[in-house]
Structures are given as C-alpha cells and as structure tokens.
Design a binder for these strands. Sequence first.
DNA 1: TTGAAAGCGCTAACAG
DNA 2: CTGTTAGCGCTTTCAA
Lengths: 334, 334
Amino acid sequence: MTATSRPTSRDVAHEAGVSQSTVSLVLGGKWAGRVSPATVATVQAAAERLGYRPNPAARSLRLGTTRTVMLMVPTLTAPFFGSVYAGAAREAARHGLGVVVYPWPDDAGPADSPFATPHEAIDGILASSMPEEVVERFHGTPVVMLDSDPGGRFPTVNFGVADGMRALVAHLAGLGHRRFGHVAATVHQWTFHTRHAALAAAVAEAGGTLARAAGALDITEAKDAAGRLLDAAPDPAARPTALVCDDDLMAAGAYKAARARGLEVPADLSVTGMDDVLLATALEPELTTVRLPAEELGAEGMRSLLTLLNGTRPEPRTLPGELVVRASTRATGR
Amino acid sequence: MTATSRPTSRDVAHEAGVSQSTVSLVLGGKWAGRVSPATVATVQAAAERLGYRPNPAARSLRLGTTRTVMLMVPTLTAPFFGSVYAGAAREAARHGLGVVVYPWPDDAGPADSPFATPHEAIDGILASSMPEEVVERFHGTPVVMLDSDPGGRFPTVNFGVADGMRALVAHLAGLGHRRFGHVAATVHQWTFHTRHAALAAAVAEAGGTLARAAGALDITEAKDAAGRLLDAAPDPAARPTALVCDDDLMAAGAYKAARARGLEVPADLSVTGMDDVLLATALEPELTTVRLPAEELGAEGMRSLLTLLNGTRPEPRTLPGELVVRASTRATGR
DNA sequence: TTGAAAGCGCTAACAG
DNA sequence: CTGTTAGCGCTTTCAA
C-alpha cells in the first residue's frame, strides 16, 4: 500500500498474513464455520491497526445494492422535514442503511434535475409531500410516499389530518363557536386538499358557517387572508369567532391580523393551527393545534420502504394526530 | 442485458454497434478529436433509447473520487441548517458535485460507529457549528469548518457575529439604554463564546452594565433566564431596560418572561435576537435582530471546499451580519 | 479451514 | 478514428 491512500482489504490481508478473501469473510461477518477463531482475531487486529474501512463504491458495485435510500422533501428550510429525516434516519440505521436527503425543487437552485448531477445511487425512495410525477422519473426504484394521496400508485404513510380537523372543530364547537373562518393555504398538496374538505364537512356537521380566504404558506399572506375574513362582515356580530388555519405558520399570520384590528386572541377571537411545530409555543398566546408526529412519519415510512425492499407491498398506514389545547382558543363571549 | 436491470455502457455499445470504450468516451464528453461526429450521434441516440445512466459506484471505484461532499450539521430540526444546505448544494451543483447531509449527533439516534453504517464515500466535508474533534475521525478527508473557531486546524468561513453584537449594542445605546441583560445560551460553540465576549466588550465600551443569565437553547429555558434577569433587581428602576438574547429563539422566551410580568415590549423593555430566522417576523412585536446569511455561509463554505479540493488552502472568510431594526426596540422612557 | 479467481461497470492508456 | 485491455476494491463461488 502507499502511505497516502486508504488501506484496502488486500493491505489487511498482507498485514495479517492471510488471503484477501479471508479478510472479506471475516470483516463481512460471514466466517462462522469457515475461518478459525484464531485467524479471525488476527484479521480483526490487522484491520484495526490499519484503520481499515471498506470501500463503499466497490461494495455496491459488487453487490448491486447501495444500502442507501433517498429522502425527497420539498425543502429543508421548514423544520418539519428535518424531523421527518430524523425519524427515517434512525429507523434506517437500525437496519444498516444510510439516508441521503434530496430537497426538490426549492433548495438546490433552479432546475437541477435529478439527472443533471451525478446523483446518488440508491436502493429506494421515500418522498414526503411530493407530487407523484416527480418520483415517477426514477423508473424501477421502489418508492414509498409520505403525506400524499393514498389513491396513488405507491404505498403511503399519512397523517390523520381529516380527524385532526374534526377534532379541532369539535373542540371549537364545544366552546360555542359557530361562525368559522378558514385561513387556507394555496398549496397543491394532498394534505391541504384533505384539510379543506374535512374542515368544510366538520363545520357543516356542527351546524356552523365557514368563510374561506387563501394565501401562500407564509406569514404575510396568511395575515392578509385572515384580515379579509375579519373585515368581510360589515357587522362585527357576523364576523367569524374562530379562525381555523391550515398550519401553525398561517396561525401566526392570523394573530397579526387580529392584533392589527385591536382584537385580542383568545378573548375576541379563537385561532387554531395544525402541525405543532416549535412556533406553536413561541407565539403568545400559545397555539391550540394538532400535533402531527413528523418523526414518526419518517420512521414508519422507512419501515414501509424496508418492507417494500423485501418484496412485499406494505399496507397504507395512517398516523393519528393529537389535539393539543393551549391558550389560543376560548369560549365565545355569550 | 436482462430486461429488468439497468442498461450498462456495454448494452449501449451493443445497441450502437460500437465498442464499450467508445461509449465511455462519448458519454464522458471526451471524444473531441477522437471519435467521429457520426459515431457520437449514433451512440448518443442509443444511450437515449435505452435510458442509459452511468453507474456511479463503478465510476467512483474507477476514479477514486465520488463527486460528493458531506455537510455535517448538529441537527436538521433547526431551519437555519436547512438554509446552509441550500446554499452549499446550489454552489456544489454548479460544479457537478452532490451534497449529502449528515446530522450529527442528534438526529440519527445513538452512536452509529464508523463500522455500523456504511456511510457515504465522500471527497470532502463541510462541517457547520461542530466541534473540531468530531471531524477529525475522517482522517485525510479535506475539511472546511463553518461557523467555527478560526483558530483551529481547518479553513473556516464565519459570520461576523462580534460586529453584529456591537451593532446591536450601538443601536440600543443610541436609544438611551444603559442597563443591559444578556439572555445567554449554554451551548459550547464558537459562535456563542464570541457573542458573549463581544457583547460584554461592547456594553463596557458604551458605559453600560450587563447582567447575565443562561439557559439551554430553547424557549422555556430562555424564558426562565430572562425572568431571573427581570426579577433580580429589587428596585424596578435598576432593572435592565434591554435584553440582548443569544438568538431569536431565546428572544421568544424573553418576550414570554416580559409578558408574564406585565411588561410590554418594547414600551417597557427592549429585546433583541440574532440570526433572523422566520420566527423573528412571526413574533409580535417583530424582532430587532441581526441577519446572519445562512445560505451564503453554505455557498461560501462550498467555494472554500472546492478551493481546498483543488489543492490550495483557502483564506478564512467572514460574512458580515446585518442589523435589522424592527419593532422590539425603542428609546428608554426618559 | 483457507486461497484462487471471476467479475460487478466504468475510465483511460495503449494498440491498431 | 476505434477497439482491446487492465484494473479500481470488493464479495462469493469453487477448489484445494
């Protein structure tokens, strides 16, 4: 071996005085009944001494497998997807797999198609909150979709967002609210379509009314949308008493709209979010919301992908959300 | 080729009626003056028809290079690091490199020993906000440290956090503040040590006093720390009039401590953060802080790493922060 | 119980 | 201008 480059299994073999294939057997843990314990010890010592690390490229070339899966997310700038990663990576590590994150399309700049750069060689894909088309270009690679339409061609793991919306409305209705406003996100993702439909249904069932205003998933647009809802009724007595926001970030915008009009949350207006990210407890008052277990989504998705990699298509799974009542909701005045 | 597996360059060669090495030359873009244009066209058509993609494992085995660099971050659950990734990935893509993210140690669970997971083969490492020791295990791999002590053995790219602190204190002093409180993070990272030292120096220079309370980097602990600062003085007239927080998240805790005591921000108390993450504009009042360009840190770090990969050690770089005055600071009463 | 050898798909030196 | 060939480091038969 040269002094500069990484030691190979051949170097270890030479150091231990055995053949290279014996080294491979030993370090691969496949020596039971094929190599004497004494030799095993010698080889392990030699590997240790040299600081040997198998070359993953060679291994994957030989095996045709990379023991790496790709997690596709819309962006890494939302902490939610960091949690999804954490769950997926933890579960993957338990099975000796690595996870590479691939934000698409936002983060890496304009149009770097998956094919433009020599992207990772991977055994499977976990795609969170992505349109199905994006993933269809990876022909033949096993895919599990997270937070996506369960009616698609790939196995899915989802949150029970519809139940979450129902729980929110039930909570609010129990507090006496009947006039609801929906601060909606104009984002074409399954989860938002589902939230919208479930909210409408739940409000109808509770005998309430629902006004809707929509904007992009950011604070300013949410503030504007909430403002429109608050200003719509000429008579304050016809104004919504509760604003159901599509996620926690939009709820922050709703807070701002309320304060700008001299309305106090929750005394004059109840506000709810969904997701339960860090922001929910940073706001004041702390936000009533539905906790969506992001880490668990990643972990459960990884389990499904492992099942798929083993050759059986996993059942669709739904992870329940949990209503978290904090300080942004209160009974209506009278 | 079998019907199921990916086509190889040999399949393309067969399809095009040329040798495999010609395919390699053409698809590698190295054919100028060595292969006839007609043959090139034939080969490209065949590759297209077959949907050929070179096998990265084989390529990297042959080349001894992976065209992939690793970004190490403490966690992906803080949106800051998502932005660092975005900047790094964008810059890397311009040079045909990929970036894999490696959160350590938080996210992926317990102690994955170097032998436990076959982690990525990589050409270089970008380590953000990490202790140097963590990175030293990757002997011989080129490293650039981000947001780290510039006195270490590796090249660095940093924020001008000291200047940032000075700008904050100058702004506050200009508003008449003299009694400062420091809501400090008990995190052993270069950036926080630097913030602490710069703040102390700036306050001294402004002729002010500085009380300090510390806690972990979360809202609850920040609230407690800020509360201690606010409660320390028996006489309210001796209380700090401005709370300088180590980052935006801690500022959110300071808001809570203030409100819990009936103090209004900024009328009764000015509060500042640092980083300028999304939270800064979600809070009310919006937070005066220092914008630290996270994406630019990632991009500049990648440029430095590319320089290092080309064989020359890059100069240390410092990216200036920018004071962003919003609504959480105001002149003292009188 | 161990070693020899083949070959994964690719690049590049060299021959023709 | 194009083809032949060696070999990157590894796993896995097969033979000894």
